[in-house]
Design a protein around this nucleic acid. Structure first.
Ligand SMILES: NC(=O)c1ccc[n+]([C@@H]2O[C@H](COP(=O)([O-])OP(=O)(O)OC[C@H]3O[C@@H](n4cnc5c(N)ncnc54)[C@H](O)[C@@H]3O)[C@@H](O)[C@H]2O)c1
Ligand SMILES: NC(=O)c1ccc[n+]([C@@H]2O[C@H](COP(=O)([O-])OP(=O)(O)OC[C@H]3O[C@@H](n4cnc5c(N)ncnc54)[C@H](O)[C@@H]3O)[C@@H](O)[C@H]2O)c1
Lengths: 220, 220
DNA sequence: GCGACTTTGTTCCTGCGTTCACAAGCGGTT
DNA sequence: AACCGCTTGTGAACGCAGGAACAAAGTCGC
């Protein structure tokens, strides 16, 4: 009893598959029917060999000597990523950043739909953003249950992020994307990913400085 | 002539150093003078052994049996990351997302200051956000030259992101943080990092689906 | 029908990152 | 002064990701 293809796909590969998916959608809208790994790799900004290795995790899906059929590959990646159908998401903390996310049309075209916007500030409740009305937090559990939302996005201040995460998990949300600059702990079975923009800037600052010292130190 | 400590710090370590830096600032503000690797690791959400290995890239900076001196370690990390002094940044594309970033106070306290906000839409020009006035793009080169800004942030629509990146590089910016969902190519000596929120959501969607199938398939 | 060309899928290998485990060193205590 | 407990720093092993090279396979041209 062998399983010819391991179930587990490396997370780095999954992230790139999402990039390929977007490039394939662009190709498809442009009317292109097939692409080679070289062309797709260039559009995605990666190495062609690595791209083929990534795709090999899905099983053979190209035609040798020709390339990949755009629509077939796109649909297969979408199915593997779990975005063949639109996914319901809730967003908590409708401040500066949360409003921008709620208003962003790009998520809908990628298969993510916000079905609930939540805030604690009375001034925010009732506001309409991106086709949704901001609701008070105590409606969170009901909305998650009614819409089967599986993803929660946290854009609240850092000091309440953990309590919001707890409420999301209690409401039945299974995946959390956290923009607050604190590490969150979630119960077993709930995935948490964080986006930390300050860290990104600090890595850039380091790389820039690194470049300076290596430029000064190397030319011996 | 040996160099006892290799100049190069792994990028993954650099990203975590930024997280430690934030945790140390919190500890310092709370009046704490020393921390153990265990406490700091818990605050940062990482493994204690990994934290010590990360810090070892800076040279010995703790006291055995006691721990790390909070302020000393904070200052050393800040110096290594290149944020001991504030860094000037410019932001291009003052739409929904760009406005949220420009208005965000958290960057200033982490050592990043926006010294120029730029947009192409006449309606945006002159608007005041976060203490800055939105300027037309043709002032970009002058502002970068005058302020010595080293970091540029792109929050424009995807189709113009590459041209904005080119202009930033030409103006003398050496590091770019890109929020537009396209891979950018930059000249030698210019670092580019991207933040792709759709990819984050799609990874979460995959992990959630993965959890489902493994829960169904495994209990044999 | 056959050969040559193109492109995929895989295999090997190298380097990096992470984890565990332990020796070395320091402070406090008796 | 010597011992003991605690914490750091490092060495080794493991697993993973990335890149290059090669074989398999299909198509196009003749
Ligand atoms: N704005 C940015 O550019 C930016 C950048 C990086 C990180 N962040 C992080 O993202 C988060 C949000 O940033 P922001 O600029 O949008 O802040 P903000 O203050 O504009 O918005 C926060 C919102 O959360 C709401 N809120 C407060 N407590 C709540 C609770 N218990 N439950 C639900 N909602 C609650 C507030 O009413 C407010 O509307 C912060 O953690 C911030 O550190 C923001
Ligand atoms: N808003 C979000 O939550 C979100 C999420 C993920 C990704 N993004 C990406 O971030 C980028 C910005 O998103 P947004 O929602 O803020 O869009 P937006 O349309 O609100 O803002 C874009 C801004 O860029 C300006 N602009 C257009 N062309 C320009 C040019 N050539 N030079 C300078 N400025 C120019 C526009 O005038 C506008 O103000 C997009 O690429 C989007 O895909 C946004």
């Amino acid at each position: 009893m062998i399983q010819p293809r391991p179930r587990t796909i490396p997370e780095a590969t999954v992230a790139r598959l999402a990039v390929y998916l977007r490039a394939l959608s662009t190709f498809s809208e442009g009317g292109r029917s097939t692409v080679s790994s070289g062309d797709l790799a260039e559009a995605a900004g990666v190495n062609p060999a690595g791209l083929r290795k990534d795709l090999s995790h899905l099983g053979p899906c190209g035609v040798r000597g020709v390339g990949y059929e755009v629509r077939t590959l796109r649909d297969r990646i979408a199915r593997v990523l779990g975005v063949e159908r639109s996914r319901a998401c809730v967003l908590v903390g409708i401040g500066n950043l949360g409003s921008a996310l709620a208003d962003y049309a790009g998520f809908g075209s990628r298969g993510f739909e916000f079905v609930g916007l939540f805030d604690a500030a009375p001034a925010r409740i009732g506001q309409r953003i991106g086709g949704q009305t901001v609701r008070p937090l105590d409606q969170l559990a009901d909305v998650v249950a009614a819409t089967q939302a599986s993803i929660g996005v946290i854009t609240t201040p850092a000091d309440v992020a953990q309590s919001v995460c707890d409420r999301l998990a209690a409401a039945g949300v299974r995946s959390v994307l956290n923009f607050a600059p604190v590490p969150l702990v979630a119960p077993e079975g709930v995935d948490v990913r964080k986006v930390d923009l300050s860290v990104e800037l600090q890595v850039l600052a380091f790389l820039g400085q690194q470049r300076l010292v290596s430029a000064l130190g190397e030319p011996a």
